[in-house]
Computed example of a mutant assay.
Amino acid sequence: MQEILRSQIEKIVSLTDDEFEFVMSHFSTRFYKKHQYVVQAGDAAPNDHFVVKGLLRSFYIDDAGKTHILQFAMEDWWISDPDAYHNKLNATLNIDCLEDTQVYYISIDNREKLCVALNKMEYFFRKKTTAGYIALQKRILSLMSQNAEARYIQFIKLYPLLLQRLPKSLIASYLGISRETLSRLTML
């Protein structure tokens, strides 16, 4: 299972076996059951999670009780509450498991120690964080400027594997549309 993380890191930086062993010494592993929370709003969220196996979602529940899905994370993806993680605050977001899940996780303190000791990892995390910010910007602009059909087509193109693993109700929530609207779009 470590090879999944190594493969992801080595898409950006190369590591010797000793360096990778050092990197792994900063991570821990955890298994979660379907429907189990990884992070709950209001609690501390000290870890960033790399998904080895499974599927998670991060979401926010507004004052009216409506759920807003910000992100899904499947194998080879990262997930956290960035504000809580980087600023050592209590979480605003919830993260739960949509399938049985295994993650490697790293605390912000271990990440900082790792980055100081191994500059390659500083570069790796900076590139991953930048890519995440860019993806979030594109998602926000899509929600602000595209109609439901365009957002659905974009979702299909970007995440074909998620389309097969998620119920339509969660896809609709992610796209900011009703389940009925999504059903109409899938018939086009």
Rank of each mutant, 00 (worst) to 15 (best):
Q102T: 13
S142N: 10
K128W: 01
F124N: 05
G132Q: 12
R126I: 03
N94W: 11
L162M: 11
S169Y: 15
L70F: 14
G54E: 04
F124S: 08
S145E: 04
L143S: 14
R57F: 10
K66D: 13
A117M: 07
K113A: 13
Y152R: 06
Y133G: 07
N119L: 14
I108S: 14
Q164M: 10
L98T: 07
N110A: 01
C97L: 01
Y105K: 08
L56E: 06
L143Y: 03
F59S: 15
F155M: 09
Y123N: 08
F155S: 12
S145T: 15
I79H: 00
K127H: 04
V51S: 02
I79G: 00
L141K: 10
A150W: 00
G65Y: 10
A135G: 08
M74Y: 03
E75A: 05
Y85W: 06
L56N: 03
K66W: 02
Q137P: 00
Y60N: 05
K113E: 12
T67G: 03
T67H: 05
A148M: 04
I108A: 12
M121Y: 05
T92M: 08
H49S: 11
A91N: 08
D48H: 14
D100E: 10
L93M: 13
G65R: 09
D81V: 05
A91V: 12
K113R: 13
D63E: 13
S145L: 12
D109H: 08
Q71V: 02
K66F: 11
N119E: 14
V51G: 07
L89Q: 15
N147V: 02
D83P: 07
S145I: 02
Y60Q: 03
E149V: 03
K168P: 00
F72I: 06
L143K: 12
A117F: 02
A64N: 13
W78D: 00
D100I: 04
I134P: 00
A148D: 09
I61A: 05
P160T: 09
Y159D: 14
E149K: 13
K128S: 11
L158V: 01
L162G: 10
R139V: 04
I79V: 07
H68T: 06
I61S: 08
R111N: 14
